[in-house]
């Protein structure tokens, strides 16, 4: 919930005061925050004592339990988005 409130605050700030010429700086700061978040996720995982043990002993079952539900979710959601939502697709922003 707090995430939504903060995002709304950002929307408000952009409506009241945010020069369009700072858009590029905003994107760069987003990239830095993103990489820091991914890095911290990696640190949390790597610092778990049983991280490697868990991966080696229960790896194959865990692969099935992540892959099948994730793929089935895509299979379920894709036709729903085609029917009910805007069907936008494109190349990643990096390529645009």
């Amino acid at each position: 919930m707090d995430v939504i409130i903060i995002m709304c605050a950002g929307i408000l700030v952009s409506k009241i005061f945010f020069p369009i010429k700072w858009k590029r700086i905003n994107e760069l700061l987003q990239l830095i925050c993103t990489l820091l978040l991914i890095f911290s996720m990696g640190v949390i995982l790597g610092s778990r004592e049983d991280f490697l043990d868990t991966i080696t002993t229960l790896g194959s079952q865990s692969i099935l339990f992540f892959l099948i539900p994730a793929v089935f979710s895509v299979i379920a959601v894709y036709p729903l988005t085609k029917i009910f939502l805007n069907d936008k697709k494109g190349k990643g922003k990096d390529e645009n």
Binding site: M7, A9, G10, I11, L12, S14, L29, Q30
Partner: peptide, 13 residues
């Protein structure tokens, strides 16, 4: 939170 604030700015723009 900082990221979400920046995202909010992007959405607002």
């Amino acid at each position: 939170y900082a990221l979400m604030f920046l995202v909010g700015i992007s959405i607002g723009l």
